[in-house]
Deep mutational scan, measured.
Amino acid sequence: MGFKLLSKLLVYLTASIMAIASPLAFSVDSSGEYPTVSEIPVGEVRLYQIADGVWSHIATQSFDGAVYPSNGLIVRDGDELLLIDTAWGAKNTAALLAEIEKQIGLPVTRAVSTHFHDDRVGGVDVLRAAGVATYASPSTRRLAEVEGNEIPTHSLEGLSSSGDAVRFGPVELFYPGAAHSTDNLIVYVPSASVLYGGCAIYELSRTSAGNVADADLAEWPTSIERIQQHYPEAQFVIPGHGLPGGLDLLKHTTNVVKAHTNRSVVE
């Protein structure tokens, strides 16, 4: 069995187990497998329904001669939608809004960016022009300005110390501490036991640490421990890039980060 097929099978099995364990909360999309990078042309966006009122959005972007996937989250909030992270750029984010209108038909009224990198804030200006209120932590807003990236308009308070959590509509926002970046936030959907790890969490097929220019490698494993301790009931975990899975993604990420750190020390 090929690795790609095995990865998709694991996603399907995880979703099936969740649907059985929580039949009222989960209505997993039966329309197909989780979209992969090879299936999404740059400039297009796919939506994948995880649970009743919960979707991931998947886009792709060219970077350094390669094409990478990027995940975000959409959560229903009454007759409105909360968006977590842009679709990595203005063109993708405009396509995301169009796809949401086509498939869901509810307005996106608020959006949260989970850290300051372009795959999370690139497209904020498109959201703002569409009347979406954009939010991020003060740290993310400051770092985005320093980096020359787009800056969300509103500040999220109460997320300055490791372990801080605040309720934001249908989700809980959690600051686990520094990891992929010093400002990275985690998003949890309690009604569906869905954990969105953003770039602080890796997919299972990833074996290298990737972009760690703004990471705190020493603190990252401790931050992941905080996530595990705060959300032990999480059933569906979405990484910032690639295929979702279960809580095993947290341990896998820790292993990859520690291996990278150990290699760096040896070198």
Rank of each mutant, 00 (worst) to 15 (best):
M1C: 13
G2E: 09
K4N: 09
K4T: 06
K4E: 09
L5F: 13
K8C: 09
L9N: 02
L9P: 06
L10P: 03
V11P: 06
L13M: 02
A15I: 02
A15G: 07
S16R: 11
I17V: 04
I17C: 05
M18Q: 05
M18Y: 03
A19R: 03
A19D: 15
I20S: 11
P23I: 11
P23C: 11
F26L: 05
F26R: 05
F26H: 00
S27M: 07
V28S: 04
S30D: 13
S30G: 07
S31Q: 03
S31I: 02
G32D: 05
E33R: 05
E33Q: 09
P35G: 09
T36S: 08
S38A: 08
V42H: 03
G43N: 04
G43Y: 04
L47S: 09
Y48G: 11
Y48H: 07
Q49N: 06
A51F: 11
D52P: 05
G53H: 06
V54P: 03
V54R: 03
W55L: 06
W55M: 03
S56F: 03
S56W: 07
H57V: 07
I58K: 10
I58Y: 05
A59K: 03
F63L: 06
F63K: 05
G65C: 03
G65W: 04
V67K: 10
V67P: 10
Y68F: 02
S70C: 04
G72K: 01
G72V: 04
I74W: 01
R76W: 12
R76Q: 02
D77H: 03
G78S: 05
D79G: 12
E80F: 05
E80R: 13
L81A: 14
T86G: 14
T86P: 06
T86V: 14
T86W: 00
A87I: 00
A87M: 02
W88N: 01
A90N: 04
T93G: 04
A94T: 12
L96V: 13
L96M: 07
L97S: 13
A98F: 02
E99D: 09
E99Q: 06
Q103E: 08
Q103S: 13
L106P: 03
L106S: 06
V108F: 00
V108K: 01
V112L: 11
H115E: 00
F116K: 09
H117R: 00
D118P: 12
D118E: 05
D119F: 00
D119A: 15
D119T: 00
R120Y: 14
V121M: 09
V121Q: 15
G123C: 02
V124S: 14
V124I: 02
D125K: 11
A130M: 15
G131L: 14
A133P: 05
A136N: 06
S139I: 02
S139C: 02
S139P: 15
T140F: 03
R142H: 01
R142V: 05
R142L: 02
R142P: 14
L143P: 08
L143W: 10
L143M: 02
L143E: 09
E145R: 10
E147L: 06
E147N: 15
E147C: 02
G148H: 02
E150L: 01
T153L: 01
T153F: 14
H154C: 03
H154P: 02
S155D: 15
L156R: 08
L156P: 15
E157D: 08
L159D: 13
L159E: 05
S160F: 06
S160A: 09
S161P: 10
S161V: 13
S162K: 05
S162Y: 09
S162I: 15
G163H: 08
D164V: 12
V166S: 02
Y175C: 11
P176M: 02
G177N: 15
A178G: 10
A178H: 14
A178V: 09
S181Y: 01
S181N: 09
T182V: 07
T182A: 02
D183H: 11
N184D: 07
N184C: 12
V187R: 01
V189L: 12
S191K: 07
S193E: 07
S193I: 03
S193Y: 13
V194R: 01
L195R: 01
L195H: 01
Y196R: 02
Y196L: 08
Y196P: 01
A200T: 12
Y202L: 08
Y202E: 10
L204F: 03
L204S: 12
S205L: 08
T207H: 14
A209W: 13
A209K: 04
G210T: 07
V212L: 10
A213S: 10
A213F: 10
D214I: 10
D214S: 08
D216H: 07
D216E: 11
A218V: 08
A218D: 14
E219I: 08
E219M: 09
E219C: 05
E219F: 01
E219G: 09
W220I: 14
W220L: 10
P221Q: 12
T222E: 10
S223E: 03
S223P: 04
I224G: 10
I224R: 02
E225D: 08
R226V: 13
R226T: 00
I227S: 07
I227K: 01
I227E: 03
Q229T: 13
Q229S: 02
Y231W: 05
P232K: 15
P232R: 12
A234I: 14
A234G: 11
A234E: 14
F236Q: 03
F236V: 09
F236R: 05
V237K: 02
I238V: 08
I238L: 12
P239V: 11
G242D: 09
G242F: 07
L243H: 14
L243T: 13
G245F: 12
G246H: 06
G246P: 04
L247C: 15
L247H: 11
L247Y: 15
D248W: 07
D248C: 06
K251E: 06
K251H: 00
K251M: 08
K251Y: 14
T253R: 02
N255I: 09
K258G: 06
A259G: 07
A259K: 01
T261C: 11
T261V: 13
N262D: 11
N262M: 09
S264R: 05
S264Y: 15
V265C: 08
V265P: 02
